[in-house]
């Protein structure tokens, strides 16, 4: 089992800031899991010298997917946050994000949400028509 440190979104930056002071200065990964009624955003941080790692989890209600950026603390969060907003439709505020990173051609859907169903029975052509 993964030990998750569950906090609220208001505590996020303070917690990450204090963890940083404890030596967790390396951000390994940011991802999210869609549990339908809420989306859990996960921050994996690492103390490189002592090989300690910590996973911080923030639950966001499905109807209020807003979270502050952590780019001010961890610059490595830049692309992860952009990926998160494209794949899960999470609004990350407090940062500039000029364009889509992975899905430049289509920003309309959030493919890693459970509401987006991977339908293998049809393919869409270049015009978006179902075949």
């Amino acid at each position: 089992m993964v030990r998750l440190l569950k906090i609220s979104r208001e505590e996020l930056r303070d917690t990450l800031g204090s963890k940083m002071k404890e030596g967790y200065s390396y951000l390994t990964y940011i991802t999210a899991v869609d549990y339908v009624d809420h989306v859990q955003v996960l921050y994996f941080i690492e103390d490189l010298e002592n090989s300690n790692s910590e996973t911080i989890a923030v639950d966001l209600p499905a109807d209020d997917l807003n979270i502050h950026s952590v780019i001010g603390l961890f610059h490595a969060a830049d692309w992860y946050e952009r990926e998160l907003s494209e794949m899960f439709g999470i609004n990350i505020y407090g940062r500039d994000c000029e364009r889509l990173l992975l899905r430049e051609w289509d920003g309309k859907v959030a493919p890693l949400r459970k509401s987006f169903v991977w339908n293998t029975n049809y393919e869409t052509d270049a015009n978006g028509d179902k075949n």
Binding site: V2, T28, Y29, T31, A32, V33, D34, L42, F44, L112
Partner: peptide, 20 residues
């Protein structure tokens, strides 16, 4: 470099697999 996989497992299949 270092990769990690975060898996939330469901019956028979992954519920979510995050790949760093």
């Amino acid at each position: 470099g270092e990769s990690l996989m975060y898996l939330v497992a469901d019956k028979q299949r992954p519920y979510r697999l995050g790949i760093r």
